[in-house]
């Protein structure tokens, strides 16, 4: 969390574009091009197509996050996301950033087209003979991958960050050494109450039907996480939480778990304040027995952020007993 004790904000690491040993080529996306560096095998450089539209303050808030965290949280962040680590300027102009390279476990090798990311889209369509190089997770592995995705969302929400542009391509997965997810394109994240680095429309078919305004919120993250989980677990890209019997396609799930996931889906299909938190999804996807305590808590849909999980920097306050019970 941002220090609130009057200490100065951590320094933002900045590198000049001219100092980078950039390898030409790279993959071009909608907002920028990701390039390798000749002298750093652990980092890649993303250069934005249109530097004139960038919000430098938003990138600086992303870059300051690791320095404000405990060692354990920083490790969690960097092990589970391709989080930006240095801003890149061309003179005084912000043009891009360095981020960790996506670890090799999240790639597969196609005999014709070579190295490809194990994007979440591969979890959302049935296996095909022509995609032999893509491993097919078991139900238990799917649950573990999706739980890991929900935990990443819960972690970022707990640190007052919104994921933003959630889609079948912005999160990748692996089976080995253990089933897990990894968040990429983290420059789409934004700190609660602040604008993102670059305005982003929802990816079509990943839209939040109740989204208000142009900016993603924790409530829209919660809805899109439901899409990620429902589509990944049902292996059906068109899945929506409004579908009747949303987990009916998974009779192989333990009945109590199926019921818990169905309850969360139905809540995700309702008004903003009923949308389940990422932590609730993570819990339902786990292998522990479920204890139903209450209806899902309200989600936020505006500038005010309510953490969805205990924050180690702001532990729950002790209860004050006001009167003795007989």
């Amino acid at each position: 969390m941002t220090p609130n004790n009057g200490a100065p904000a951590p320094r933002v690491p900045v590198r000049q574009r001219s100092s980078l040993a950039v390898v030409e080529g790279g993959d071009s996306g909608g907002q920028g091009r990701v390039r390798l560096l000749r002298d750093r095998s652990d980092l890649v450089y993303k250069e934005f197509h249109d530097a004139g539209k960038l919000d430098r303050g938003a990138m600086d808030r992303i870059l300051r996050l690791p320095a404000t965290m405990s060692e354990a949280d920083r490790s969690t962040l960097l092990c589970n996301t391709a989080w930006p680590v240095e801003r890149v300027d061309d003179g005084s102009r912000f043009v891009g950033f360095l981020m960790g390279k996506i670890p090799s476990e999240f790639w597969y090798e196609d005999p014709v087209v070579g190295h490809r990311l194990l994007e979440f889209q591969h979890l959302m369509f049935p296996p095909r003979a022509t995609r032999k190089a893509v491993p097919e997770p078991s139900t238990a592995q799917r649950l573990a991958i999706l739980r890991s995705a929900a935990e990443i969302f819960a972690f970022l929400h707990g640190h007052s960050f919104i994921v933003g542009d959630v889609s079948m391509k912005n999160i990748v997965w692996s089976l080995s050494p253990r089933p897990r997810a990894f968040l990429i394109d983290c420059d789409g994240c934004r700190k609660v109450s602040y604008l993102p680095v670059l305005h982003q429309a929802d990816t079509p078919e990943w839209d939040d039907p109740l989204r208000q305004g142009n900016t993603s919120t924790e409530a829209s993250d919660r809805y899109k996480l439901a899409l990620l989980i429902g589509r990944g677990l049902n292996v059906r890209y068109s899945w929506r939480p409004t579908d009747p019997d949303p987990f009916g396609a998974r009779p192989d799930l333990p009945e109590k778990q199926r019921q818990a996931l169905t309850r969360l889906s139905q809540a995700a299909a309702g008004p903003l304040h009923t949308r389940p938190s990422a932590a609730e999804w993570a819990s339902a996807l786990g292998d522990r027995p479920m204890i139903r305590l209450s209806a899902p808590g309200p989600s936020t849909n505006g500038a005010v952020h309510q953490p969805t999980q205990p924050n180690p920097r702001n532990p729950a306050r002790p209860k004050i007993r006001l009167r003795e019970t007989p």
């Binding site: 196609d110 087209v113 022509t130 890209y237």
Partner: peptide, 16 residues
Amino acid sequence: LGKLHAEIANNPVVAD
């Protein structure tokens, strides 16, 4: 054509 096929087969949303 072989590359085109592999590219699209490896991109399930596009293939769909």
